[in-house]
């Protein structure tokens, strides 16, 4: 819709600015808090502008962490988060693209059943199956490990469906041309399907990376060793000060740091991401 009325333009801008303010204000408050000392924030009046302790607070978090809450330095936690998010994103993509390939291009017995089994897992997110999943992971001895953090979250019906839809838009003639050109199934997958779903893979990677990075309940449950704390779960542990006030300035500094990798991924892959979501021409 293209309107050319100044009043409407103004209104549109006001709505957008309100939206930005709603999203950005908490982030700003967190940032301001992370640049003050602990006492500044407890005094009752919340400062509006950044204070002088930015470098000091961030350096402390990256270097040592908050010993009283038993969390390791933020650097370690971020690394854990990064490993977990990457394992989840890459694992999900690898598994779902191959299963979509099987479902779309092969006529094997019980194909429909396999399809519906994948479909049904949509109704069983981690939160629903958390007790049995924990039991399985514990029995396998995967508590406090990267495998335990990521594997239970890797199976993904949504990603399988996304790739199924992508594959269904690829014209049959292309498959047939490849067959005549002597490309076997795996060659077809590698030479034709993968390059054609490149943008979709990128879009999915962005979404799944953020999904993995933001995992909270599961890491909280299965990590007891501080070596495997992830940053999102770590923030919670820091805020839970047992004997004393939470050190909000440090919690907020951690929160700011925890925000950076997802932001970097989104900005870095923005162009591919948008292309992957809107591109229809194959």
């Amino acid at each position: 819709m293209i309107e050319n009325r100044p009043g409407l333009t103004l209104l549109a801008h006001l709505v957008l600015m309100a939206g930005v303010a709603i999203v950005a204000l908490p982030v700003w408050v967190a940032f301001v808090a992370s640049t003050h000392t602990a006492t500044d924030f407890m005094s009752g009046t919340i400062p509006v502008w950044p204070g002088p302790h930015l470098v000091e607070n961030y350096a402390r978090m990256l270097d040592a962490g908050v010993s009283t809450s038993g969390t390791p330095p933020v650097g370690t936690m971020m690394l854990n988060s990064l490993v977990m998010a990457l394992l989840i994103a890459c694992g999900k993509i690898a598994i779902s693209i191959t299963s979509a390939f099987a479902i779309v291009y092969f006529r094997f017995p019980l194909r429909q059943l396999a399809f519906w089994c994948i479909f049904i897992t949509l109704m069983l997110p981690v939160e629903v199956r958390i007790v049995p999943t924990f039991q399985v992971v514990a029995d396998l001895g995967l508590l406090n490990s990267y495998a335990g953090l990521s594997i239970p979250l890797i199976a993904s019906a949504t990603a399988t469906f996304l790739f199924r839809q992508v594959f269904l838009t690829i014209p049959d003639e292309l498959t047939e041309a490849a067959r005549i050109d002597g490309a076997g199934p795996m060659k077809f997958f590698r030479d034709i399907l993968l390059p054609l779903s490149r943008t979709n893979i990128a879009a999915l990677f962005v979404i799944l990376f953020i999904y993995g990075w933001n995992q909270y309940l599961w890491p909280l449950l299965i990590t007891t060793s501080s070596d495997y704390y992830t940053v999102v779960a770590g923030i919670k542990r820091m805020a839970d000060a047992v004997d004393g006030l939470p050190q909000w300035h440090l919690v907020m500094a951690t929160a700011m740091l925890a925000m950076l990798p997802p932001v970097a991924v989104v900005i870095g892959m923005q162009r591919l991401f948008v292309k992957g979501l809107v591109e229809t021409e194959k």
């Binding site: 014209p171 003639e173 292309l174 047939e176 041309a177 490849a178 005549i180 030479d191 034709i192 390059p195 054609l196 490149r198 021409e281 194959k282």
Partner: peptide, 11 residues
């Protein structure tokens, strides 16, 4: 074979 919609590999 030559197809109606050409079936060229777009990438």
């Amino acid at each position: 074979m030559v197809f109606q919609n050409y079936a060229l590999y777009p990438h």
